[in-house]
Each structure stands twice: as C-alpha cells, then as structure tokens.
C-alpha cells in the first residue's frame, strides 16, 4: 500500500466535524487507509489508530473540525477571519466523495466550470470567460495564492439580491485544503470565506469537509448550508467521473488552458514537495535525464 511521504505525514489532517463526535460514542473513520477511532472523553478528545489503541495520536480542534496526524504535525495554517466576532461560522457538511484529494482541490480552484455546472448560481452563459488572474507560490509560507480572479455570478451567495461581478482570492495553504475569499454581497469592504478541507480516506476516496465563515446576519444556518451543499452536490458527479482519479503531476499528462494557471502552480508545488499520495508522480523520462 502506498504510504504518504514525510511532508504529507507531518501535517494536521481533518478527520471529523466537531459535532459528529458525541461523548461516549466512539467515532470511526479512516485516514491514509488507516482506520482510526475518535472519542470525546471527560478530559478531552482522544484519537488513536484502531490497531494501536494504547498510543494516542496528536489532536487539534480548529475551525469547527477535529484534526490529527500520523506524523509530527507542523502548525495548522491560519484563517484569521474565522475569529472575527460578527462572522457566522459553520460546518456546511462532511461528504464522502470517490475522488482523490488533489482532484477535489483543483476543482475548487477552477472557475471555468461555473456557468456549466453551477448554472444560474455561480455562472451563466454567455459570461463564460475566465479573465486573466495572478498566481504565486509562496515557498516561505508554503502556499499557493491566486488573486484578482473575477467572474460574473448570477447568485453568488444566499444573501445575493442579483447578479454581480465577484472577486475571488484562493489560498492553498495545505496540500489537501483550500480557502476561498469572495466578495461579500452584504458588505463591499469585506469578504466571505469558504474552505474545503479534504480528508484523504484513501488515495481515491475523500471526505470533503466544508467550512463557511460568512458576513450575513439575515440568512439561517440551514439556508447557508443548503446553498453550499447545492453547489457541492453539483460538483460531486463531475469529481467522481474524473479519470484517472489520481492527479497526474506530469505537466504533459493533461492539456491545460490559460484559465488553469492556478492548477498548474498547484501541481508544480505538489511535485516540489514530493507529494506522492492521491497523485501520479512525475517520473523523469529517459530522454530528459
């Protein structure tokens, strides 16, 4: 069985929504093909591999989710907006998907599919152009950043009154997590935050955990969850029908277009970090050596 490289292993990985784990009720899930058990005990959370119940794994509760690691985790990335007092923070759902984590991240970064997959919500014909945007990889912070992304959206959020040109910033601060900042329909000076945290159950199966941190004092949590689940439910069959399910890191394996700039940077970054799980690694060809 393929094991994650040390870079991947030494990250925090999401394994459950806070509310999914009740006291007295062991919660079973899988991380990197390893069955694990999460328990909420009187003195806090306990996470163990099912086959090594005496050895506790590191545990962290952050952003409404439970995180653990099979290695020695480096600090979890920051989402400073999450702690702003007037934000409505919610777990929008944890959904099992038959896809690799990197394919799910790439889909999250892609704007080109909005008019076709999220018709009349995040896009609509004839507004199909993905305008030029900027991408940088910050080696120091270890994250991919895409800025100046703009797209016409008929209904950008639960709180939208009508169509608007929406500006996006995408961060990929973790090989399997992405955080998106988008124009907030109710306050033009601030941004709504939507994040996807992918739990690698296996190389070709994930649990997609979704966080929303929104400026919206009108909609109910149920309404805001429903909006995000509607969107993700539209992505799901697309994700599950991608072939191969693992993300190829060889730049020649698939044919990118200009709109895929962020995906190209993401694939290159995974390659540089030696990420080997949920991907088809770049193998140097004889002619290149």
């Amino acid at each position: 069985m393929n094991r994650p490289n040390p870079y991947l292993n030494d990250h925090w990985h999401v394994v459950a929504g806070n509310e999914a784990v009740a006291s007295g009720q062991p919660f079973r899930t899988v991380l990197f093909d390893v069955p694990i058990i999460i328990q909420r005990l009187a003195d806090g959370l306990r996470v163990t591999a099912a086959l090594a119940p005496e050895k506790p794994l590191p545990v962290l509760e952050r952003y409404g989710f439970i995180w653990t690691s099979l290695g020695t985790p480096m600090p979890l990335f920051e989402i400073p907006e999450y702690d702003e007092a007037d934000r409505r923070n919610m777990n929008a759902g944890s959904l099992g998907v038959a896809v690799s984590a990197p394919r799910a991240i790439e889909n999250f970064l892609d704007m080109g599919h909005f008019p076709y997959v999220h018709t009349d919500i995040l896009g609509a014909e004839p507004h199909t152009e993905v305008k030029e945007y900027d991408v940088e990889v910050s080696a120091e912070r270890g994250e991919v950043l895409a800025t100046r992304c703009r797209f016409f959206q008929p209904r950008a959020a639960t709180s939208s009154a009508g169509g608007q040109e929406v500006e996006y910033v995408y961060r990929v601060p973790h090989p399997y997590c992405s955080v998106l900042y988008k124009s907030c329909p109710s306050d033009e000076n601030r941004r709504d935050v939507i994040a996807i945290f992918c739990q690698p159950v296996g190389e070709e199966r994930i649990v997609a955990h979704m966080l929303q941190s929104l400026i919206d004092d009108v909609s109910t949590i149920t309404d805001m969850r429903r909006f995000q689940q509607t969107i993700f439910g539209q992505d799901k069959p697309i994700l599950e029908n991608q072939y191969p399910k693992k993300l190829p890191l060889d730049p020649r394996a698939e044919t990118p277009i200009r709109a895929d700039k962020s995906a190209i940077a993401y694939r290159r970054w995974l390659s540089q970090m030696g990420v080997n799980y949920g991907v088809i690694p770049l193998v140097p060809r004889v002619a290149d050596v």
């Binding site: 929504g17 509310e19 999914a20 777990n91 759902g93 944890s94 109910t220 949590i221 149920t222 309404d223 969850r225 429903r226 689940q229």
Partner: peptide, 10 residues
C-alpha cells in the same frame, strides 16, 4: 422550508 437533514439531523 429547508430542513437541515445533514449534518444537522433536523
């Protein structure tokens, strides 16, 4: 009337 079937079990 939206009902939070999952994850809320409403």
């Amino acid at each position: 009337v939206p009902v939070d079937f999952y994850p809320g079990r409403e």
